[in-house]
Simulated assay, not measured.
Amino acid sequence: MFFSVWSPFVTDDPKSIPDDEKIVLLKKGDNVKTGEFGNEGSGGQSYMKYNWKADTTYKFLLKGVPNGDNSTTYTAWFFMPETNNWQIIASFKRPKTNTYLKRFHSFLENFMPTQGYLTRKVNFNNQWVYDGEWKKVNGAKLTVDATYKANQRIDATGGTTSTGYFLKMGGFFNEIEQPGTAFKFDNKQTAPQIDFSKLQ
């Protein structure tokens, strides 16, 4: 799994980022690798190798808080089913930024073009936002990438299920949902129970 934060300096070459616009690593979790990335913008990157299992629900938590000095700290956690605990992935400081989280996205991506014949599907269930109190996510909009917009691959779709939202891509299926379609889902599940004071 990856957790990346883009630099405010627009470039595909991380070596060209001025020191005052570099992403600063504040801390990372066990078995997490960190560094820089480029070629699609540039910034700080972290990743942890994990043996995903199909038909298993995994939980993530993302926090963005302004520091009051024109920088914002972004921190991500992953709930480890094996230990029944939240583990920090990484925490980064982004300079020249003063904002809480906004414009949330979830996505599904194939990193290996040679596996485009395989269909991938992910369900997003029980999504919430916390701003002093938990608020359920009750709407989503389907967007697509440049590959879809160029009509190179349009086997990508999304929508609602009985428990939330889904995205599906690859495998040359012919189910089409118009990009830009908005979906509504009435989440009747209970809000997360997380003791924030115990998070690393």
Results as ranks from 00 to 15, higher is better:
2 F>P: 03
3 F>D: 04
6 W>I: 00
9 F>C: 11
16 S>W: 07
17 I>C: 11
20 D>A: 09
20 D>N: 15
21 E>F: 09
22 K>P: 01
22 K>V: 13
23 I>K: 04
26 L>V: 14
26 L>K: 15
28 K>Y: 05
30 D>R: 04
32 V>H: 07
34 T>A: 10
35 G>H: 07
38 G>V: 10
39 N>H: 11
39 N>Y: 09
40 E>A: 13
41 G>M: 09
42 S>Y: 10
43 G>L: 03
43 G>W: 11
45 Q>T: 08
46 S>H: 05
47 Y>H: 14
52 W>M: 08
52 W>F: 15
54 A>G: 07
58 Y>A: 07
58 Y>L: 11
61 L>H: 04
64 G>A: 12
67 N>P: 12
68 G>F: 12
70 N>K: 08
73 T>R: 01
74 Y>A: 11
76 A>K: 06
76 A>V: 01
76 A>E: 09
77 W>C: 07
80 M>N: 15
81 P>Q: 05
85 N>Q: 13
85 N>H: 12
87 Q>W: 13
88 I>K: 02
89 I>Q: 07
89 I>L: 14
92 F>M: 04
92 F>D: 13
93 K>T: 13
98 N>C: 08
105 H>E: 11
106 S>T: 04
110 N>A: 02
110 N>L: 07
121 K>N: 02
123 N>E: 06
130 Y>S: 06
130 Y>C: 01
130 Y>V: 02
131 D>C: 07
132 G>R: 02
133 E>S: 15
133 E>W: 12
138 N>D: 12
138 N>E: 15
141 K>Y: 00
142 L>C: 03
142 L>A: 04
144 V>M: 02
145 D>C: 12
149 K>P: 14
151 N>P: 09
152 Q>P: 09
152 Q>D: 06
153 R>A: 12
155 D>R: 04
164 G>Y: 01
166 F>M: 01
166 F>I: 01
167 L>K: 02
172 F>Q: 10
173 F>G: 03
174 N>C: 06
174 N>L: 14
175 E>S: 07
177 E>P: 02
179 P>M: 05
181 T>D: 05
182 A>C: 06
184 K>T: 08
185 F>H: 03
187 N>W: 02
188 K>W: 08
190 T>P: 11
191 A>P: 02
191 A>W: 03
193 Q>K: 15
195 D>V: 15
196 F>M: 00
196 F>S: 02
197 S>Q: 13
198 K>L: 09
199 L>H: 10
199 L>A: 03
200 Q>M: 09
200 Q>C: 08
